[in-house]
Design a binder for these strands. Sequence first.
DNA 1: CTGAATCCCTGCCGATACTG
DNA 2: CAGTATCGGCAGGGATTCAG
Lengths: 119, 119
Amino acid sequence: MTHQTVGHPGLPDDPRAAVTEPTPSCPVEITLDVLRGRWMTLVIRELLREELSFTELRQALPSLSDKVLADRLAHLVQWGVLERRRQPGWPPRTQYALTPHGRRLGPVLQTLWDWGNEL
Amino acid sequence: MTHQTVGHPGLPDDPRAAVTEPTPSCPVEITLDVLRGRWMTLVIRELLREELSFTELRQALPSLSDKVLADRLAHLVQWGVLERRRQPGWPPRTQYALTPHGRRLGPVLQTLWDWGNEL
DNA sequence: CTGAATCCCTGCCGATACTG
DNA sequence: CAGTATCGGCAGGGATTCAG
C-alpha cells in the first residue's frame, strides 16, 4: 500500500481513487469485474480446492450450463486468474488451475465472506 | 472467523461454503450484491469521506443520473449500509451517512483495490 | 470430452419528464 | 431539493443444438 492522504483517511493516495465515473482502470472495478457474473465465485471456490477438468467442474456445479461455464473459464483465463492446460490424446481433456495471482483471490473472497457474515 | 476444515484449507467450515449453486444466503454473494451495479463503489467512496446530501452526491458524481443515484441509495439503505436522515422544513434536505456496518466496507474496498492493483 | 453457435428472455441503466 | 414515472437499448444468462 502507498501512504494515505491526510484529508481522506482510508482511501489510497492514487489518482484513480478520485475518478468521478466508473472506469476500467480503477483497481476496485478490475477486481469486481473479475468476480462479476453468476456462478463466478463458485467456480473460483472449486478451483481453490484443486485443479479440475471441464467435466469435473460440471459435476461439482450440476446446475451450471456448458455455455456459462465456458464463458466463465474463458473470462478468468483472459484475466490471468486461470491457466488452461490441454492434455494431448483422446478423449480430449482440459485442466484448469489457478495462477499464483488467482490463488490470491482466496483472501479476497474470505474478506467478502467475513463482511457478508457480519451482524 | 470459525476454524478451517482440514481437507479444504482456506475455506470456511460452514455449510454455506459448500453450496453448489448461487444462493442469497451465501455471505460472499451478500457482499457482492451490496456492491453490485455501476456507480455503487463510487457512491460508497464518497460517503466514506463524509456524509452527504442527495445534491452533494450529484455534484460529486456529475455523470450519475438522478434515477440511478436514488436506486443506489435505496439499495444501500435497505442493506443497512446507509442511514437516511430527512431534515424537517423547506427546502427539503436528506443526509446520507454510512452506518457502522457500512463503514466497515472501507477495508473491503481496500482489499479489492489491492488485488486489482497487483501485477 | 470440450466446447462454439444460436435464440430468447429478462433486468439493468440511461434519458427524459414530472411531483411533493 | 429530492426524488418518482415511464420508456427504450443493450448485455447477461439459460436452453438447445452442433462441432473438433
